[in-house]
Amino acid sequence: MSSGTHKSWVPRGLPHDAEASARVRDWLLEHKSGGLDASGLDLSDSDLSGGDFSESWFAETKFINAKLTDAELYRSDAAGADFTSADLTNTSLVRVNLDDAILRNAILDGANLVGASLYGVDAVGASLRGAALMGSSLIQVDFRGANLSNATVEENTFKVTVDQDTVFEGLHGTLFGPIKLVADDDELELGGSQLERWINERGGSVRVLAPRNRSASGPSTESPETNPTAEPPA
């Protein structure tokens, strides 16, 4: 989006919180293309759809039930932000820092998360149908009950937690495991060809890559076939 878009854009609904609402109003009145500093503020229940928030600061910001559809958050810092039940359909989250964020029951259908960082994210029940995840770091992400149907991965670190309710149908591309499968109060680690088979049996079309942490002294001690004798739940 251009700076002109920022000048002409008007939010559909300001947050109920007085301090947060005033911060957004002041930012709009400045007529600048720079990012919004809303760190630690409560933007819950607002409708900021279509806004250009490139390189903004949203660390620890609350976006509970907020609408950010078609918004631009390129290179923003949203570490620790709470997006519970937020609507981020078709939102650009390219290179956004989402470490320790909460995405519980959030809608990220069609979202662009290329190069984003998601470490320690709670994405239980989140919908990422058709999301672009290429190059994003997915480490210690809780995807239990999440919908990853038709999402695209490309050499993604995919060290996530899933369960039998996680939807993989149409998930395609390449990734690095292993994942943690939680079933019946038990946990099973799946990696390598075992992980590839398990996802593809659920409608995915992925290729699990061998670990790339090789050293000059020899191959990695990490085996691409994690716990090969264990039988994952059907």
Rank of each mutant, 00 (worst) to 15 (best):
N65K: 12
N65I: 01
N65M: 05
A66F: 08
A66Q: 04
A66C: 07
K67D: 12
K67H: 11
K67N: 13
L68K: 11
L68I: 04
L68T: 07
T69L: 13
T69F: 10
T69C: 11
D70L: 05
D70W: 07
E72L: 14
E72Y: 09
E72M: 06
L73M: 14
L73A: 13
L73D: 00
L73E: 09
L73H: 05
Y74E: 15
Y74T: 15
Y74N: 15
Y74L: 14
Y74F: 15
R75H: 15
R75N: 12
R75V: 14
R75K: 15
S76D: 03
S76V: 05
D77H: 10
D77K: 14
D77E: 12
D77P: 04
A78H: 02
A78K: 02
A78Y: 02
A79Q: 11
A79R: 13
A79V: 08
A79I: 11
A79T: 12
G80T: 01
G80R: 00
G80E: 06
A81E: 04
A81C: 07
D82C: 06
D82G: 06
D82Q: 08
D82W: 00
F83V: 02
F83A: 02
T84N: 10
T84V: 05
T84R: 13
S85R: 14
S85M: 12
A86L: 08
A86H: 00
D87F: 03
D87W: 03
D87H: 06
L88H: 05
L88R: 02
L88F: 02
T89R: 10
T89D: 11
T91N: 03
T91M: 02
T91L: 00
T91Q: 06
T91F: 01
T91A: 10
S92E: 15
S92K: 14
S92Q: 13
L93N: 06
L93T: 03
V94T: 10
V94C: 01
V94W: 04
V96W: 01
V96D: 05
V96M: 00
V96R: 01
N97I: 15
N97H: 05
N97F: 10
N97A: 01
N97S: 08
L98C: 05
L98A: 04
L98V: 06
L98G: 03
L98H: 02
L98F: 06
D99V: 11
D99Y: 01
D100V: 00
D100E: 10
D100C: 00
